[in-house]
Amino acid sequence: MRRPFEQIVAEYGPMVLRVCRAVLGPQDAEDAWSETFVSALKAYPDLPPDANVEAWLVTIAHRRSVDVTRAAARRPTPVETLPERPGVTGRPEDWDGDLWRALKALPARQRQAVAYHYLAGLPYKEIAALCGGSTDAARRAAADGIKTLRGTYPRLTDQSGVAR
């Protein structure tokens, strides 16, 4: 018994969007989300009914985001000459540019480990299977990433302790 795909989009779409945004930033996240869900829709009839849907989607998103990153690397980079500003796409709902600047500065492996663990809830064992390396290495990458972010992301040092 497999659920209608519409339910998969409704239940997991927002989580996958957060992961794509954290790994790729606001500009490429929506392309990666779209490619992830089109791929998932194609493969969905063959997904074993007892599969972990979250891990399956993050796996697809990981592969798509690697593709998107490679495509971005091949693109000429006029972006470099533009001033850094929040809301690159000009959409009011775009999330905090400071957070993306801090995430972007991390090595890709750390950014992935942080996003897959803290936003998608994947255990380190599965992150290791996805990104290569050992479970311990995945745990270390996430811990190092968080440690760096504590120093580079200003909101974390906000003494009020209230998350906005």
Binding site: V9, G13, P14, M15, L17, R18, R21, A22, E30, W33, S34, F37, V38, L41, R91, E93, W95, D96, D98, L99, V114, Y118, L119, I146, L149, R150, Y153, R155, L156, A163, R164
Partner: peptide, 23 residues
């Protein structure tokens, strides 16, 4: 770490509507 991602919305209805249409 949870606070760290507070700036990243857990629900973004306009974005989801746009992405659903594109899907």
């Amino acid at each position: 770490a949870g606070r760290l991602f507070a700036a990243l919305p857990t629900q973004d209805a306009p974005a989801m509507a746009r992405l659903h249409e594109r899907l």
